[in-house]
Write a protein that binds this DNA or RNA. Structure first.
Lengths: 214, 214
DNA sequence: ATCCTAGACTTACCTCGTAAAGTCGGGGGG
DNA sequence: CCCCCCGACTTTACGAGGTAAGTCTAGGAT
């Protein structure tokens, strides 16, 4: 590694950025700190992301939401082929996708704000859409209802993660008191929410509602 | 209004901040710009939000997610009383809440990233929870399942808004091409998604799945 | 040997959040 | 009527952030 070849690559930069986000939050991801972590001056990152931090953000979002990474987290399969047909039934495929996607979002929940205003038109997003569409077609949905069903499924998973992250966030200073104005909340205060279980139950409810139809 | 009374108030600051967010996006909400919009120096805002921008963010989130604002957008009702019992059936109340909440989130979608890591322990959040819990109890759910159902409902609405905002965001530079790798996506490319309709259908599916139980 | 080029480093500029101290005006006590 | 005090805004200033522009070095091509 001479002075002007630090071995940078977009992938390496993204994974290091995610380490920073996971460790100290999105607002502490700065170009200078990222450069330090990569043993490089901040401006070196601009050679791999010439459009600056926004482009880096986009790469981070695509990295997190790529279903191919969840399916094959280790190195390439033997022949490096396209994944081909998944032999599992449609609902099992969708559940597996939802589980993996949720896990990736929870692992990198600090990056969630980055996802909100980015259109899912990347290769990773198309891989997800292909998976969803094929599954819902196999489930017997009429084609004109498939994109809507896929949208509802995607909404649910992302929403569940955001809900859980909100619930587990740091309490705000002077949280509102649960007093007589909120009798039902007070009565049910002792009921704990198991996020994994609620997620699975809601997913079942949604899939059933989307595909069972007269 | 003399020099040292510009008529500032937290509410006024929040609404002006939202105007900026809606108009030019969250990253353009700066203290200096907000001060300019309020005809005040930036530091004046710190007298009403002494903890700085994070506190302002919290106030914005609470403003957006307060169901009381949607229920009574105009001035106080005659006697300024508590709203009391809502005579509508439980599912109608939940649908109305979901509709109003979704509308508020879509109107201020630029503020969505602020909501992700804030625990919903404000007075506004408790008002929502009270509404949800009472409705699901009225629907006949066993009490230990009520918080989970409320979580699933909240997840769905927030997720649907985020999904829609993502879909309608600006396209990224060099979006991925829909080629032979994505045959099902290509085949269904012409199907448009009506977000309002998909939202209503998914909401029906979810409510039915959550409350219909053996 | 000389030059070119790509990639990495350096410098510099402007903006941002906000700490600290200053300033102003009105209202209440003497 | 005067004074002073306090709350509301302003001034000043600093450190950190993103990034444009320029510089440097090593390695290959001539």
């Amino acid at each position: 590694m001479s002075r002007n070849n630090a071995g940078l690559s977009p992938e390496l930069i993204v994974t290091e950025a995610l380490r920073i986000i996971d460790g100290m939050g999105l607002r502490n991801l700065t170009m200078r700190r990222l450069g330090d972590a990569l043993k490089v001056e901040a401006m070196a990152i601009y050679h791999h992301f010439p459009l600056g931090k926004e482009q880096l953000y986009g790469a981070i979002v695509e990295y997190i939401s790529d279903p191919a990474r969840a399916a094959a987290p280790s190195g390439a399969e033997e022949s490096g082929e396209e994944p081909g047909q998944d032999p599992r039934p449609w609902d099992e495929r969708l559940r597996a996708w939802a589980h993996d996607y949720r896990a990736a979002l929870l692992r990198h929940s600090g990056a969630l704000p980055l996802m909100i205003h980015r259109r899912p038109d990347t290769a990773a997003a198309l891989r997800s859409a292909e998976l969803h569409y094929a599954a819902f077609l196999e489930a017997g949905l009429p084609p004109e209802e498939v994109p809507g069903a896929a949208a509802a499924l995607d909404s649910y998973v992302l929403g569940a993660v955001v809900h859980q992250v909100r619930a587990e966030g740091l309490p705000s200073r002077d949280p509102a008191e649960v007093d007589g104005r909120f009798p039902t909340v007070a009565a049910l205060r002792g009921v704990a929410v198991d996020h994994d279980r609620v997620f699975a139950a809601g997913l079942d409810a949604l899939l059933a509602g989307l595909t069972a139809r007269g």
